[in-house]
Amino acid sequence: MTAVTETETTGIAVQQARAGMPLHHVAIFVALLAAGLVAPFLLYPVFLMKVLCFALFACAFNLLLGYGGLLSFGHAAYFGSASYIAAHAAKVWGLSPELAILSGTLAAAVLGLAIGSLAIRRQGIYFAMVTLAFAQMVFFFSLQAPFTGGEDGIQAVPRGNLFGLLSLRSDFTLYFVVLAITLGGLLLIYRIIHSPFGQVLKAIRENEPRAVSLGYRVNRYKLAVFVLSATLAGLAGSTKALVFQLASLTDVHWSMSGEVVLMTLIGGMGTVFGPIVGAAIIVTMQNYLATFGAWVTIIQGCIFVVCVMLFREGIVGVIAKWIRKPL
């Protein structure tokens, strides 16, 4: 008798957890917010902003890979072109920062729609190759187009005044804006994953033919998540352009696409919080090991190999396994 009621109550608890945001996720978001508010008093704000931008970029990428089951090897295209458009909008068109970011993000969405609608017709490695090929085209376009400044990039991008009121010249002020953008983006991604759309997405990732046999037109869902992912990657790229006041070829280079794969895998693909951890680790390494020069890439490579060999689920994936809760 007691056994029955026990299974019943746990059953209900699990279900409630599945319906709303489970308590441990609320706790993590609150902790992230708290850490985000305290951090600039302890660490260099520009470094922190870089972590935030890449955390958002990696989470956007993970939305596509971890929940859509699609490995894009050209996400730098959206990150980088958004960065160029935002920089151009702020510097040449003289738009305020929020509009500059918006233009960059929209540009990434349009580019995502164009590339995505072609790429989703192929699967697996062919999908990855198509996305890479298009990203390379974007790279060469960025190298040649007159407005991108070629090898120099777009430099000295003005940060301007937020909504025409708040000057973002100080790193400290800008930091809180970037924190708000990143947290907003993360919450949106969280919602996408836990929406009716997200459920269908997971079903397609798990068993595509079955989803088709249930009447889902899977290509439309794949395209939708591709565009969402590209858009959010664009949001990260645009924000980054304002933080560093620079848009350059690094942002569209294929190694940027590789880096975001690395961040996601190290942190934990298909986990909500993994890519944030992965981005923090990689950015920290790049910053604090910068004195080693080219050795950084070798150290990164070694860490990647160790990660893949020892814990394939990534750091957060392994922790989630320990505590037996999805993270």
């Binding site: 319906a19 709303g20 929406s195 009716p196 759309f197 997200g198 459920q199 269908v200």
Partner: peptide
């Protein structure tokens, strides 16, 4: 529920909580 969800038509509403399910 993935199958029952089909009654809603196409579930493209990524902004809504899955509570609706």
């Amino acid at each position: 529920r993935i199958a029952l969800q089909r009654k809603r038509g196409d579930s493209f509403d990524f902004w809504r909580s899955q509570k609706v399910l």
